[in-house]
Write a protein that binds this DNA or RNA. Structure first.
Lengths: 214, 214
DNA sequence: ATTTACTTACCGAGTACTCGCTCGGTTATT
DNA sequence: AATAACCGAGCGAGTACTCGGTAAGTAAAT
């Protein structure tokens, strides 16, 4: 715990508590994201990231003591930002939850850097059990799938979704489709309409799992 | 062209034409596959592959002059083997083509090494335009999607598949689902029933695109 | 208001190591 | 005699990370 708030001019909005290293840190995270995204973990070098920040190598390592620390900081930072933007923890019962992810995919279509980061890091972690982001990747899927499945279960309870639907299985399919489409889109952004394809998938899925009117 | 066959003992079945370097080469390809699969292109080292073959580094480079050559040789070798095993170019009209891929996914569930190789190399290529396997990845999707779409179009022509189905879009969705499920399965093989999930997806998809009986 | 004590934010130089790849040569096969 | 199949040694570049230091800022004590 540190006491910082009570300085002489409380009126100034000021970056809040963090003196200035915080701004530098966020800058580093932004640069690191881009370089990790295009080269993966092993392919990215601390030197390159440092240079992109106008720092020396030891200068960067002052803020993030190891390369693995830097990667996990980038991932956590992005997760935190995303959790704020899309309030993923709010309950959105039923098929509305599915439509929510259509919006996210549309949003991601304008952020290839982010998509690349998640694609490459997830694959690396999937393929190499010792990868520094392994726990992150496993936990991320758990969180995503658990959250969507919970929302779908709410839909089952209120009767809008058929009772015989395996909500976890559906959630897995949804995120598989998201990730698979991202790969094709990154390889061929002009010919692959990622949001459009995902939307048709979600539309068909929605009509399938919705309780039929009688 | 090389003339080798006419040696003194034509009765022996012998590995066919290639003297012995061919056997060594295939051994190298098998070892390289495993190491590329678990570390990606950049993360894998020629030294490690050579050691796994009982060769020195220059000894390996005698057979494959550069690292990129070795990777593309591995990928082409696998493609050739797969094309022989699953005769992908045979026309299998209609939804039978979809069921064919269910079999392949079931088969892949016993070959995590292969799945890893394709997952990591595809992601690397998707994320980095200068990746040595970029053309391979783009061309592979083109071939897979084109082939499946063509088979689906046959189904449209013979009336078993609805005429308003966008066959290319459906093909893209199928392979997206394959690749996305592979990631989740690699991260969590015990909890993710990859073939089962893919089969339910294909089943639902099949009923959707089939012409309704009237 | 100034000194003292401490922390933060860096950098230059270097360590020990790995990387892909080459050169010059030897051995085995045909 | 010719070619294929190697290997030992080494090159130049890059790797993550460390060491020892400096300069600046901050907080409390005087």
């Amino acid at each position: 715990m540190r006491k910082i708030g009570d300085m002489s001019n409380p009126g100034r909005p000021q970056p809040r508590s963090q003196p200035r290293g915080q701004a530098r840190k966020e800058h580093i995270l932004a640069v690191a994201l881009k370089i990790f995204a295009e080269n993966g973990y092993r392919g990215a070098s601390i030197a390159e990231i440092a240079e992109g920040c106008g720092l020396s190598q030891p200068g960067l390592l002052h803020h993030f003591p190891t390369k693995a620390d830097l990667l996990t900081a980038v991932l956590e930072y992005r997760d935190r930002l995303d959790a704020e933007k899309f309030h993923v923890d709010d309950p959105t019962p039923g098929t509305a939850a599915l439509r929510h992810y259509v919006n996210i995919v549309e949003h991601n279509a304008h952020l290839p850097g982010l998509v690349k980061l998640f694609a490459i890091v997830t694959s690396e972690a999937a393929v190499n059990p010792a990868h520094p982001a392994r726990d992150w990747a496993v936990g991320r899927y758990e969180k995503l799938i658990g959250g969507l499945a919970a929302n779908l279960r709410l839909g089952v309870e209120d009767g809008s979704i058929r009772a015989d639907v395996d909500t976890t299985a559906v959630a897995r399919l949804v995120f598989s489709m998201m990730d698979g489409l991202q790969l094709q889109w990154l390889l061929n952004p002009d010919r692959v309409d990622m949001p459009g394809l995902f939307r048709t998938f979600i539309d068909e899925l929605t009509t399938e799992i919705t309780t039929p009117d009688r």
